[in-house]
Design a protein around this nucleic acid. Structure first.
Length: 341
DNA sequence: TCTGGGGTCCTAGGACCC
DNA sequence: TCTGGGGTCCTAGGACCC
């Protein structure tokens, strides 16, 4: 069996931990914590704020309208990263395999005799050592465990097995499946495939034309409750690193745009060089006020580099490949990293 | 009340080479 | 002479996740 550990309202919970007076109050974490700021969105809302309809991705100003009494806090990624490390260390203290999945999730596998007992022990240990609570899903593969954790939230334990899968998940919309987003859900709807049970009963051949071979093969398997059972304990090696910024006021001046992109390119290079990595590709992203968002990317011809000058010049070169007739609201730079041997 | 930031993986088309 | 088929690299975009 595989367990999926999913922290409850993780970002909000970390903030509440260091400000206990916030417990029980609606808390909204996002942007610089200013509910009047434009172009900033909710990162995480506490359960109390969610009761007012506030959710991740919502503009802060909208959140403030829905829940004027909420406490608004700036995001503090370093604090969440540090809290995440403490949680994962607790999980690794057990004789199990742990695969970290983002800040606030992990899959746990290995030689597990009694998954229910293990789940209870993990929850208790995480709470005792970090003050944070989690939900735990138990399943026969990662997909089942992940879906089970949704039923377990907040703070519970839930099991979903192959035998239970179709009776429980079958009637639910295909969009409930981990890996099916709004676009795929709409395409499935257009094919008359609305529920997980309907998708599970569809031969891949019927999906190839619309979805391509890989997704066509995966969709019915996932809908039938099939999934990956491998827990990888290898440390994650990042493929890329990026920085982007949405500006409160649109940018039109190409000199200013160039300065911004150059600064991002240099900062990014410093970050990855700190991590001992080399840069192979540079990409620039522009979002116009229309929300049209093209990207331009290039491989560094001279080979992998750690030189900020090279990365900056590449980014500035890529800038020449865009049209500058309209103002922009976002600029971003991404670098791809050479994979160590 | 207009729509964040940081990632990963997949697909598709064109260039280029044999 | 007007024309094939395969393989790989590169870039752009789409979709999804937290």
């Amino acid at each position: 069996m595989i367990l999926h550990v999913d922290m409850d309202q993780f970002v909000a919970a970390v903030e509440i931990l260091r400000r206990p007076e916030l417990r029980g109050q609606p808390v909204v974490v996002g942007g610089a914590g200013d509910p009047t700021a434009r172009r900033q969105v909710v990162s995480t809302a506490s359960y109390e704020a969610r009761e007012h309809g506030v959710h991740s991705g919502m503009p802060l100003r909208r959140a403030a309208q829905l829940c004027p009494s909420a406490v608004f806090l700036p995001t503090d990624p370093a604090a969440y990263s540090e809290a995440s490390e403490r949680v994962m260390a607790v999980l690794r203290g057990f004789p199990v395999d742990v695969e970290v999945w983002g800040w606030d999730e992990a899959f746990v596998g290995g030689d597990i005799a009694d998954p229910q007992a293990l789940a209870a022990e993990l929850k208790a240990a995480v709470f005792a050592e970090t003050g944070l609570t989690c939900a735990i899903g138990i399943g026969e593969n990662k997909l089942q465990a992940k879906m089970a954790a949704r039923f377990a939230k907040p703070g519970g334990v839930h099991t979903l097995t192959t035998a239970e899968w179709l009776p429980v998940m079958g009637p639910r919309p295909a969009a409930d499946l981990w890996g099916i987003g709004p676009k795929t859900a709409r395409k499935l709807d257009e094919l008359g495939l609305h529920t997980i049970a309907q998708l599970a009963a569809t031969p891949p051949e019927d999906l190839v034309e619309r979805f391509g071979p890989r997704q066509a093969a995966w969709l019915p398997v996932a809908a039938s409750g099939g999934g990956d059972t491998h827990i990888s304990t290898e440390p994650w090696v990042a493929r890329s690193r990026s920085r982007e910024n949405t500006y409160a006021e649109d940018l039109s001046d190409l000199d200013e745009i160039s300065r911004e992109v150059a600064a991002m390119a240099r900062a990014l290079t410093a970050d990855v060089v700190d991590d001992g990595r080399e840069i192979t590709h540079v990409a620039v992203k522009v979002r116009y006020t229309s929300f049209f968002t093209p990207t331009r990317e290039m491989k560094l011809r001279a080979g992998p580099t750690t030189d900020p000058e090279v990365v900056e010049l590449a980014a500035l070169h890529l800038l020449t490949k865009f049209e500058w007739k309209r103002p922009v609201r976002l600029l971003g730079v991404r670098v791809n990293l050479a994979m160590p041997d």
